[in-house]
Amino acid sequence: MAIPQKKITAANIFQWLWKWIRQLCEWFIVGLIYLCGVSSIIFVFSIFYFVFREGAPFLRDCFDFKNFFLSPEWYPTSISNKRYGILALLAGTGSVTIVAMLVAVPFSLGTAIFIAEFCKKKTKEAMKIVVEILAAIPSVVWGFIGLMVTNPLIVKLTGAPIGLNALNAGIIVGLMSVPIIVSIAEDSIRAVPDGYIEAAEALGATRWQTVYRVILPAAKNGLLAAVLLGVGRAVGETMAVLMATGHSVNIPFNGEFPYFHALESVRTLTATIVAEMGEAPRLDAGMNGSFPAEARHYQVLFVIGIVLFVITFVINTIADLAVKGIRQKKV
């Protein structure tokens, strides 16, 4: 059987061309959407790979658990005796996070309960917008508020020698993490089935009793997740803490009462990276494969990056599991 032959006309060629271009476009679009879909996975893994690759020589050659995690001595550019201890930086991050959560948790849970249960619809809309605006303030503006407003205020109120300290940064970062906690906490409070609330009211519970005895216990996993995400935000915050902590290598915890001295300046892991990365030279290994001593500073900053990565990863995973916990319960 003979294949029906097409005549070579201009129209025929044009048709072929058109079909072919459309097919190509189709492939292109499909590929593009696929790429967008997997991009976040690619980004996470390539960032992790990059951070790990830069930090790896330090981990291989001079990483020592005891000197790295348990020593407060941070002297990466010392001439005679370079020391890379991040205990003080961990303590700084920890202290800022503690203060931040002390500030943020009551405020944001209160706000979330108010928005979800107590206020009228109009107030609710207005509140939500205001909370969103709070989230939109850039962190450098928060840092500036810490520098110019809370700094003199703390000196005036407490008599501390300087107002740039863990308390100041904690307040600032606490306010910064309010929006994220509010929005997730409010969602989880609203996810409490109406039946619970109706049952409580039918039993004659007051509004406060309903909130305290029924809604909060029912929403507790979501609230935990909200707080944990707030903690993640506080740990990862950089610019504002750089400006408000005083950026000083110091452990604010000791055996003396009250054990935690929030009025002392501290320095966080993130702020250390941002302040020192710019000037730490990225040097290559010499002929014999060993790195010059000056190359270690850059590498150790990436190791700190790995530590931060691990901390936030753990926090986010726990938050995820907590959220999943409520979903399973509901089903």
Partner: peptide, 21 residues
């Protein structure tokens, strides 16, 4: 670096200073 060389004789700084950028 200059302060460390001239004032501290190349020794290290005390921890706890406020390190500005």
């Amino acid at each position: 670096a200059y302060f460390r060389e001239k004032v501290l004789n190349k020794k290290d700084f005390k921890m706890g200073s406020k390190d500005m950028s």
